[in-house]
Amino acid sequence: MSVKTSPQSRARPRAATEHPSGDPRFSLIDRTLKRFSFQQDALIEVLHTAQEAFGFLSDDLLIYVAHQLKLPLSWVYGVATFYHFFTLTPQGQHNCIVCMGTACYVKRAAEIVAALQQEYQITAGETTADGRLSVSTARCLGSCGLAPVLVLDGEVLARETPESALERVRQHLAEHAGGAKPETNGAGVRERNGIESNGGIHEPI
């Protein structure tokens, strides 16, 4: 039987940082759990940590968090799906967020969204079939003076037109044709220039 663990490997002392699951990212979650003494009201903080570590909240992660906090599964799932910040599906390699705050809206940000949707054949909130690009809209990135604003892999593009925005996205995808993901701090959440990539994503009804 090949799956049997040898006594030797079991005896090997585990490094202090190693998590029983074998995935060190779980240690990050554990740290947050401990910081909040496993209190149930820390659920949202723990989900934040989990998503930062893993990029998205898989079922396994939700089960782990639910068990650690002794919360019902449906409770955790209900919370994770209530907030726009949490995503239960993997995101595309590249991420383009169009701000749809009032100032951007007044300056015709909707046309930029329409242009991107047309070009990549997805609706805002979706990822292209090849997993290359996620397009989403945000409530307000608070850069109203620069409207209309979009954020491409953490880089803020200000005062764009539909044409110029499309050009920037095309160029960006071409530059990263190798598929390498731009650097992030933790998977999924980019903090360059202070705008988080998952900020206020919403899905259209």
Partner: peptide
């Protein structure tokens, strides 16, 4: 502040 950082403040 965020708007100035967004336009290249850093």
């Amino acid at each position: 502040s965020t708007p100035c950082l967004s336009s290249g403040g850093s």
